[in-house]
Design a protein around this nucleic acid. Structure first.
Lengths: 115, 115
DNA sequence: TCAATATATTCTCATATAGGCATATAAAAT
DNA sequence: ATTTTATATGCCTATATGAGAATATATTGA
């Protein structure tokens, strides 16, 4: 037949670049729709519609507070993606890049505390 | 205006479930089109078309060998996704699941060597 | 050369949106 | 009650594209 709905699949949901931008903002902090509009500079309905998709796939939740609707990320819902990515890790740089990065980070933090 | 092409974006490319299935197979080993058809049981043109998209975004490369075309995964191309996912790791299970797993692994290997 | 095999391409159709615009809804403030 | 503020919805259009069917292309073999 034709294409399939992206609105019920986490993988497709993050396939849309604007939705990734919204996610990147909401990772930083819970925000209202107009706060997001201020940041991304898209028309409010565009933001609301993408949020609606993200809400349907449960990547975000909505919390009402007076006139505002506060959107918050639900990182657990993105786990399937992380898990799907595991299958590639064995190909990557000695297979332990992330660990290296993390250890380096720890070291840097240690030095910071000592200084 | 309207939607954007997925054919030039790694994130959108893996948004399509059938393409993820093909990737999952090609991670295991380089395969020809008909080998893939045998595995997934879809019409050959369907497989070829999805491979074409994956080739355009460079997730796979094609190598000709006689009448066959062997497709091989290019894991580096999926790195941007892995990197994008990093931003969520701090939310997950003590924030250091993967590291914990790795350290445990190291320890086990140490014990093995000692035994 | 001709047939067989392996794969890509073209054409068509159905459908899923992304975004624009206008408007509806809902809560708060006056 | 009326207005203002915050957000969602509905309608419309353009376009992307997944899949089916038929066909084209390319390579090997007889």
């Amino acid at each position: 037949m034709a294409r399939l709905k992206t609105t019920h699949d986490v993988f497709s949901a993050i396939g849309e670049p604007k939705r990734r931008v919204l996610i990147e903002q909401l990772v930083l902090k819970e925000m209202s729709v107009n706060e997001l509009v201020d940041v991304v500079k898209w028309p409010q309905p565009v933001v609301s519609k993408h949020l609606s998709v993200l809400k349907q796939v449960r990547i975000v939740t909505e919390r009402r507070q007076g006139r505002f609707r506060l959107y918050r990320i639900q990182p657990e819902e993105l786990r399937p993606i992380q898990e799907w990515m595991h299958q590639f890790e064995k190909f990557w740089g000695g297979s332990m890049d992330q660990l290296d990065a993390y250890l380096n980070n720890l070291q840097e933090r240690d030095s910071d505390e000592q200084s």
